[in-house]
Design a binder for these strands. Structure first.
Lengths: 168, 168
DNA sequence: CTGAAATGGTCAGTGCGCTGATTAATTGAA
DNA sequence: TTCAATTAATCAGCGCACTGACCATTTCAG
């Protein structure tokens, strides 16, 4: 019996964490607007007139997924898409009045929800919680997306004989 | 500009963490077998002959999702489904030889991947990482699934005027 | 024994999330 | 200036994940 305890698998914990969040979101924030949709609204409040791809970058979604999310928000009348007159490939995105109202309302609820979600942790633990998750996620992203480190180009983790490649 | 910094939103961090994990999984473990599929294989190694619903409980997936995952694993010949002769509603699940081989191979790679994934954290931080995530996820699950606490039935967080309900 | 409730599974519908191929527009080098 | 490379968006295909409705079987109360 070579089975493993999933409770020691970070991937499994990450999935459970997201499920738990999704549950609480549906209960405390909205059953209509999802968390990724709210992230898009939020990005467009911060920077109106962004194009699709950039919004995706801001909220961490790839081009296909962001297209679907935006199309849903458009169908619900929360944002407008207009062709960029200076670059016919782009669509410029902007919240409608209803989109803005929606964002305001959801912001309040989201803040409340985050408080409840983090209730089991002390203030100090919450800080650590954010820090640890962010560090792990950042590191894994850089494995794929090697940034220019202090060692100049090629200083990332792109070692071709490194820990990647699944030929075990 | 009432926009919020997503980096302080646990839900957003949870999603990023899972994305990062997915990326590393594809690179270091398998592009064929997904992490949830591996979790199912693992559950059946630990307890052969489980039924579908119980497997879902073990790995944290609902009835619908577990049905699809199992159907895929069945199509690939990694497990068998047979009707429980003692209860015609159940299917009993059991790994095939190929399923067992697959699980053995993926176990090794998964262990390697977890190590890489957690590289940015010290040993002590890894313990804290697990602990904090588990506590947050457990607490959120109990909001929905109130367990019998030390205070007897009804001692959960089911307060009808409590922090839930999104009527903001 | 019989009919209602509980239980295990399936199906339809919605939404997130990724890759790879394709299309249309722009940019830039020969 | 013209054609190749790049870029923004779309589409097809796969897979996870949830809810709510539905069906078959089992269980249990009367």
């Amino acid at each position: 019996m070579a089975a493993v305890d999933l409770a020691t698998h970070p991937g499994h914990l990450a999935r459970r964490l997201q499920q738990a969040h999704h549950l609480l979101w549906n209960t405390m924030v909205s059953e209509e607007i999802t968390a990724p949709q709210f992230a898009v609204l939020n990005a467009l409040v911060a920077e109106p007139g962004l194009d699709q791809r950039t919004v995706g970058e801001r909220v961490g979604l790839d081009r296909s997924t962001i297209a679907e999310v935006i199309s849903r928000l458009g169908r619900r009348g929360l944002l407008d898409k207009v062709r960029d007159p200076r670059d016919g490939r782009r669509f410029l995105l902007r919240l409608t009045d209803e989109g803005l109202r929606s964002h305001r309302k959801l912001s309040v609820r989201t803040a409340r929800m985050n408080q409840v979600f983090l209730t089991p942790l002390s203030a100090g633990e919450q800080t650590v919680f954010f820090d640890l998750i962010r560090r792990v996620a950042d590191a894994a992203e850089e494995l794929r997306n090697p940034a220019e480190g202090p060692g100049g180009p090629g200083g990332g983790l792109r070692d071709p004989a490194g820990p990647l490649a699944a030929q075990g």
